[in-house]
């Protein structure tokens, strides 16, 4: 199992090593030590690797991930798993702003809290947050699912398109065009499926409430000008 110590190896060397791994590589288990809040750790990985990052990371950890299973044993800075395509990213601690931003696929699991703008412009990613999420989360969220065990901050789902938001706790306020919607069987199944994939338990799909777009901003109407 390759171990890369960022105290002695440069970020460039690390990412270059990870980028050299193709789909059929035998080196599938990776351990990264001493990230100490560094940015862009394990970005652009494009192979089914299991990568354990032992400690807190900075901006954009696992950015644009494809196929890899990346676990951060610590907290993550802004833009964790931004624009992820596929695979799974787990952050054992908290994440900063923009977690899962513009993500197009795969699963992001945050075992702590997420700060503001979690799932901003998400485009197909599934995000599970065990704690709370901050303000402006799921802003302009296009598709995908955001499942939150705790509470949501202000302006949840502002200008949302077709993403589905499931929150178990309270929602401080909803953003423009975001409304609570009925939790139907298909949604219970969906949440159940995401929870199973996340590996988190102790909650039931029926504990969640669903929020999504009222689609009033889909075509311009001057009488909605307050929302713009």
């Amino acid at each position: 199992m390759p171990t890369v110590d960022l105290a002695t190896t440069s970020l460039r060397e690390l990412n270059e090593l990870l980028h050299k791994q193709g789909a059929g590589t035998n080196e599938t288990q990776w351990e990264i030590l001493n990230p100490k809040g560094r940015h862009a750790v394990a970005v652009g990985v494009d192979a089914p690797l299991n990568i354990d990052i032992k400690g807190p990371v900075g901006y954009y950890v696992a950015g644009m991930n494809k196929h890899a299973n990346i676990v951060v044993h610590g907290s993550a800075g802004p833009g964790a798993a931004e624009n992820m395509m596929s695979g799974k990213v787990v952050v054992k601690g908290d994440v900063s702003q923009y977690a899962g931003a513009t993500g197009r696929g795969g699963l992001l699991v945050v075992e702590g809290n997420a700060s503001s703008r979690c799932g901003i412009s998400m485009k197909g990613i599934d995000i599970v947050v065990k704690g709370n999420i901050g303000h402006m989360s799921a802003f302009m969220a296009q598709t995908g699912n955001l499942v939150v065990f705790g509470d949501a901050g202000d302006a949840l789902g502002d200008s949302i398109y077709e993403a589905r938001l499931f929150v178990r706790g309270s929602v401080k306020s909803l953003g423009a065009d975001c409304v609570e919607k009925e939790m139907r069987d298909e949604h219970l199944d969906l949440v159940d499926n995401i929870l199973q994939r996340s590996g988190l338990n102790g909650v039931k799909p029926k504990d969640f409430r669903r929020y999504g777009s009222s689609r009033k901003l889909y075509n311009f109407n001057i009488d909605n000008a307050d929302a713009y």
Partner: peptide
């Protein structure tokens, strides 16, 4: 401004770490 700034502080692993609310 970033966690990097805090990474070297004594006992940081056990500290309460959070982002100030707007």
């Amino acid at each position: 401004s970033e966690y990097r700034a805090l990474a070297g502080l004594p006992g940081i692993d056990a500290a309460r770490v959070w982002e100030p609310e707007p």
